[in-house]
Amino acid sequence: MPEKHINCRGMQCPGPIVTLFKEIKTLEPGDIITIEVTDFGFKKDINAWCKKTGNELLSLEEKDNVITAKIKKT
């Protein structure tokens, strides 16, 4: 399964979510995308986003002030 990594560090909202929207369109169902973000508002947004779009949030981690979300396109 292809995995894609995107770096959205330093981007303020809506940067990360808009970027994620764009990137996920280029993927196939089952593909995995990892996104790195430093905007803490993203933590709540990504949960809501996955619920609404039906994509699966595999993990959401916070380390050294960077939030990493792993998402599977469905």
Partner: peptide, 10 residues
């Protein structure tokens, strides 16, 4: 007035 992607989230 935000982007559609943000509006969709909340």
């Amino acid at each position: 007035i935000r982007a559609e992607e943000e509006y969709m989230v909340k």
